[in-house]
């Protein structure tokens, strides 16, 4: 899968380090990074990070604690500005953009340490995700013309529809901060999906979930990809999950990519085994 791409000459040439699956070969990759890197006061947290993600690929990013995985997500979503290299989202260079602008290009994410709008309801959390898809301003919000009611209703229905992916419609009125842990993680995914992304980044989506919940989550991630036809990239320490659903896996250690490939290629890679020795976390 890794080596097949060399002769491709489509709209954006896919480099040899790609792990884009076969079915996405003729589509424009949703994400491409070249020599991406960031330093924090001399510490190279991420260095020379090159990755291409296909339009409907499920990709995994793994590595020991502190390897720089979350930092990669922060770079891709423009929470951090890179010190080196470029991030190309859906064919557009994101240099100089902020996180909100990157979101409008079609990247959405969840957070390792959950960041919900805790004082707001579950439904309102999803509605915030839909924010840029409805278009009435402050004044019509105060004057409450017909456009206000119409769009509020449409937004309400859309929010419930999205919540139903995880069977969460019944929780719509609950305060987001009071949800059980697993539900909070799922709500973050729904909120991210509400922004209508092309690439969804999940930072340890199964953390804190029991094996049953993790099982369900795996099915749902694949379901979301199939239903929305989007790319998903996930960071996860649960190897069953990663090996089970990721088509391409990228291994990070000390800020550098040490291996790339399919699940079986990664599992038998001696460098990866070495990096994980004594550190492996079994899900």
């Amino acid at each position: 899968m890794t080596q097949k791409r060399q002769s491709n000459t489509k709209m954006v040439p896919v480099p040899s380090y790609s792990i884009v699956p076969e079915r996405d070969v003729d589509k424009r990759p949703v994400l491409e990074t070249r020599h991406l890197g960031i330093e924090f006061g001399g510490l190279k947290a991420v260095e020379d990070f090159n990755l291409t993600i296909g339009a409907t690929e499920i990709a995994g990013l793994i590595g020991p604690n502190g390897a720089g995985k979350t930092t990669v997500f922060n770079l891709l979503t423009k929470v951090y500005q890179p010190t080196n290299g470029v991030v190309i989202l859906d064919g557009k260079d994101t240099a100089g953009m902020n996180a909100a602008q990157a979101s409008k290009l079609g990247i959405a994410r969840t957070f390792q340490n959950i960041r919900l709008f805790g004082n707001m309801t579950v439904e309102d959390n999803v509605r915030i995700g839909l924010h840029n898809q409805i278009r009435y301003g402050m004044v019509s919000g105060i004057l409450r013309g017909p456009s206000y009611w119409k769009q509020e209703k449409a937004q309400h229905e859309k929010a419930l529809e999205l919540l139903s992916i995880f069977d969460m419609q019944d929780m719509a009125d609950m305060q987001a901060g009071s949800l059980p842990y697993g539900a909070q993680r799922r709500l973050e995914i729904v909120r991210a999906l509400a922004t209508n992304p092309k690439l969804l980044l999940l930072d340890e989506p199964a953390a804190g979930m029991n094996p049953h919940e993790t099982e369900e989550l795996m099915e749902n991630i694949t379901k979301i990809r199939d239903q929305f036809q989007i790319a998903i990239m996930l960071i996860e320490h649960d190897m069953n999950l990663v090996m089970g659903i990721c088509e391409g896996i990228c291994v990070l250690n000390y800020g550098r990519i040490i291996a790339k490939g399919t699940a079986s290629e990664i599992q038998s890679n001696p460098t990866v085994i070495e990096a994980y020795l004594g550190k492996r976390k079994e899900g």
Binding site: A99, F117, G118, I128, A192
Partner: peptide, 10 residues
């Protein structure tokens, strides 16, 4: 409630 999350959804 969360500036970073708010930015992340645009």
């Amino acid at each position: 409630d969360s500036r970073i999350a708010a930015e992340s959804v645009g």
